[in-house]
Nucleic acid binder design. Structure first.
Lengths: 238, 238
DNA sequence: CGACATGACTTTGTATACAAATATCGTATG
DNA sequence: CATACGATATTTGTATACAAAGTCATGTCG
C-alpha cells in the first residue's frame, strides 16, 4: 500500500492551525478532534495507517490520549482496527449509503419509542430548536450550514434521549455520528435545504406531541430518507 | 448511592479463579474478560462505580489495559460513562427489550443486504454451522448451551460480514454483543430451544441461497423476535 | 538464483510516576 | 444547628520509559 506519503504528509506542517485545535487544552479531546478533522479533511486518506507516535506529534499530545482518541474514532466508524494497527476507513458511497439505511431504521424506531416517553419539557425544547433553525439567515453560507448542523444534531439527540434508554443512546450515537460528520463535509454544501428539513422536523414534533408512535416513526424515516445521498457522484472520496 | 459494598466486595477474594481469567496472558484481554464477567456475574452490580485501580488489582493488571478494557465495556453497553467515571449499566427488562428491537431492525437489514452480496463459500460456511448445531448433544446442559452460543454467534456474524460493509460490522457488533451476553446469562437457561432456533437458521440460509432479500430480511426478523424475552419475570436483575 | 535465517528497526503494549481534578470530611463560624 | 470553608484523600488524566511483537532488509547457504 502507498500509505507512506500520507504519513509523511503531516510531519512538517503546522496542523494545530489548519485543524483548528490550537485552543483545545485537554489532550484527549485535542487528540480526538485533531484526528477526526484530519480524517474528514482528507489529510489522512482512506487506508492510511494511524501511527500513534505520529498522531501524538500531529496533535501536540502524547500517545496515551492518542490511543484513547483512536478508540473513539474506531468506535465511530471513522477508522477500522486490525490486530494491532488502525487504518482510516473508506467513505465509499456504498458505505455511507448503508449507514443511512441503518440510521433510517434505528432513528425511526427511536422516534416511535420517544412518542411514548417524551416529556413536555423535551417537546418544548424541540419547539425551541425548530424556532432557532427558522431564525438561521444567510442560507448557503458556511456559518449558516454550521449552525444548522449543530441545531440539527440537538434535534435528533433530543428525540433519542426521549426514548429513556441508555442503550438506544449509545447505539444511536455511533450510527448517527459518522453520517452527520461525513455529510456535513461532503454532501450538505450541495444538497442541504434547511427550510425543507425544518418542515419535516415540524411534522415529527407534531407526531410526538400527539404521542402517535406510528406517525413519528414514519415521519422520521421519511426525513432521514430525504437526506440520504442517492447519487455516487456527490461523494468526492468514493 | 450504596456502591461501596460493591467495590469492597472484590478486594479480598480470589477472582482470577472465580472469573476464569487465570490463563489469559495478554493484560488487555485479561482485564476486559475479567471486567465483563464480573459485570455479567453480578459481582459488579448495576450502578457500581468502576474504579480503575480496583479493577487493575482484580484482574491482575495495571490501569493502562483496564482503561482500554473499560472503553470496550462502555462501547458494548455493559457500562456507561459519565464525565470521568464509569458505572455498570442496568440490565432492566426495558433496556434488554429495546436492544432486541434494535437488533431486529439492524440484523434483518443485514440479512437483506447479505442476500445480495453473500458468496458461495460463505453459504457453505453457514451450512457447516447448521450441521454443527445439529450435532449438539445433551441439550440443556451448560456445555451444550455454551457450544450453541458460540455457533450461533458465528452464524450471525457470518451473515453480517456477508454484507461487505465495515460500518455494518462495526455497528452490529455493538448492538449484538450485549444481548447475546445478557441472554446467555439470564434468559437461555430457561427458554432456549436449539432445534427450533436451527430450523429458523435453515430458513434464513435458504432465503440467502435464493438471493431473496425480502425473504431473508423477514426470516431474520422473525428469528430474532422469537428469541426476544417477552416477560419481565425472566430478568433476574431487573 | 532462490529460500530462509538473522538482526536491526519500527510500532504497539504495559507499567508506573506524577499532575490535575474532584470528592470527602472535619472544623469553625454565623 | 446549619452551612461554608479548607485540608486531605481519592480518583482519573497524562507523559514516559521500557518490553514485546512484528516488519523488513540483508546476507548466507543450499
Amino acid at each position: 500500500m502507498s500509505l507512506n506519503e500520507a504519513n509523511s504528509a503531516f510531519q512538517d506542517a503546522d496542523f494545530a492551525d489548519d485543524l483548528k485545535i490550537g485552543d483545545i487544552e485537554r489532550p484527549a479531546e485535542r487528540a480526538y478532534q485533531g484526528i477526526r478533522r484530519a480524517i474528514l479533511k482528507g489529510i489522512l486518506p482512506s487506508g492510511a495507517h494511524l501511527r500513534e507516535e505520529a498522531l501524538a506529534q500531529m496533535t501536540g499530545t502524547s500517545r496515551t490520549p492518542v490511543r484513547e482518541a483512536l478508540r473513539r474514532v474506531v468506535a465511530e466508524g471513522l477508522a477500522r482496527a486490525d490486530n494491532r494497527h488502525r487504518y482510516v476507513s473508506d467513505f465509499s458511497f456504498k458505505e455511507v449509503s448503508i449507514v443511512f439505511d441503518i440510521r433510517i431504521r434505528l432513528e425511526s424506531f427511536a422516534a416511535r419509542v420517544a412518542a411514548e416517553n417524551i416529556t413536555d419539557s423535551e417537546l418544548a425544547e424541540l419547539d425551541h430548536i425548530l424556532a432557532e433553525i427558522d431564525r438561521i439567515e444567510n442560507v448557503g453560507q458556511p456559518a449558516a450550514t454550521e449552525r444548522f448542523a449543530e441545531l440539527n444534531s440537538r434535534f435528533h439527540n433530543t428525540i433519542i434521549k426521549a426514548t429513556r434508554s441508555m442503550q438506544m443512546q449509545t447505539l444511536s450515537a455511533q450510527a448517527v455520528s459518522l453520517p452527520l460528520e461525513v455529510i456535513k463535509q461532503f454532501v450538505w454544501e450541495q444538497t442541504v435545504n434547511i427550510a425543507q428539513s425544518n418542515d419535516q422536523h415540524r411534522v415529527i414534533v407534531t407526531a410526538l406531541k400527539q404521542r402517535n408512535p406510528d406517525w413519528a416513526e414514519n415521519a422520521m424515516a421519511g426525513h432521514i430518507l430525504s437526506t440520504k445521498p442517492h447519487r455516487p457522484s456527490i461523494m468526492p472520496r468514493g
